[in-house]
């Protein structure tokens, strides 16, 4: 194992983990606050990535896709919450899973009709299309550093919002004891809409950032969704800080595994998940429920 190679792999792991955090934070909040297992969360990520592709094809750069993802994410989140999910909070999990599964099919079919089933690469934005030498023989793409930076900034914003604002306090309360919100006489509908819009936006933004790194292709959200569920389970359902640390751990384990023990890399994160569940059934940061 050579040291410069290890350094590059660590950076890869951190970058992958931070991207996973953007996806799984929305997933864990939506589950924590509304109790919905949103299987379509991976499709939202896919929509973000294709948004980046379409914007890049039209205007030559992906940057315009970021504000579009924020505005589009908020609107799409509100629409989904008001139009569909609101009517499913009281239903059992099977109905919710069927609903979100149907959404995956609709989103994928829509993508197929609009863009086709081709595999497209998305150009790295010209501003960051250079490399930073990190060792004598290996350089690291400036765009990847940028992605790390943007993800960290978003993580900080999210923490401040959750930990320091009144809305954040209500969300934390709702995630831990949903009945508390009702008891306090707070209108839960506003909270639900905000959480859904936030989760959707984060998934779309993650998709935009990921597109130049991973290209876009049909069903690209599926793989990310599954690994994000692992992140959420390890971190503890409903816990944003749990999702953060567990995303970093998963990112590093997966990347280092692929690099140094490729034969078992596919299994490593699931073994880790099983181990964590045995040790702490509610995840690293989850509320220990009895």
């Amino acid at each position: 194992m050579d040291f410069p190679g290890l350094l590059a792999q660590l950076l890869n792991g951190v970058q992958y983990g931070l991207l996973l955090f953007l996806i799984s934070s929305g997933l864990t909040l939506i589950f924590g606050v509304m109790g919905i297992i949103n299987l379509a969360h991976g499709s939202l990520f896919m929509i973000g990535a294709y948004l980046a592709f379409l914007v890049a094809r039209q205007w030559g750069t992906v940057w315009l896709a970021l504000p579009a993802a924020v505005v589009g994410g908020i609107l799409l989140g509100l629409l989904l919450e008001r139009g569909l999910f609101r009517h499913f909070y009281a239903r059992d999990h099977l109905d919710q899973v069927l609903l979100t599964f149907a959404l995956i099919l609709l989103f994928e079919e829509g993508r197929s009709l609009m863009v086709g089933n081709d595999f497209y690469s998305v150009p790295v934005p010209a501003l960051f299309d250079f490399s930073v030498p990190i060792t004598s023989g290996f350089s690291y793409s400036a765009y990847r550093f940028t992605v790390i930076g943007i993800c960290l900034a978003l993580a900080v914003l999210l923490f401040v919002w959750i930990e320091r604002t009144k809305m954040g306090a209500i969300i934390r309360a709702a995630a831990e004891k949903p009945e508390m919100v009702d008891v306090l006489g707070i209108d839960a509908r506003g909270v639900y809409m905000a959480v859904f819009a936030l989760g959707t936006t984060l998934a779309l933004v993650a998709g935009v950032l990921a597109a130049p790194l991973y290209s876009v292709y049909p069903n690209m959200g599926d793989g990310f969704l599954i690994i994000s569920f692992v992140v959420v389970v390890i971190g503890g359902l409903g816990s944003v800080s749990g999702a953060f640390w567990s995303a970093l751990v998963i990112g590093l384990v997966d990347t280092l595994g692929k690099a140094y023990v490729p034969k078992v890399a596919g299994l490593a994160v699931y073994v880790l998940m099983a181990a964590v569940l045995l040790w702490r059934p509610s995840g690293l940061f989850g509320q220990q429920r009895t």
């Binding site: 190679g5 792999q9 991973y214 690099a259």
Partner: peptide
């Protein structure tokens, strides 16, 4: 050095090459 088709997460492979 392989990765699953049609993934394009080439970084873990590329970072191994100098070593």
């Amino acid at each position: 050095l392989v990765l699953p088709f049609p993934q394009t997460n080439f970084q873990p492979l590329l970072a191994q090459i100098p070593g």
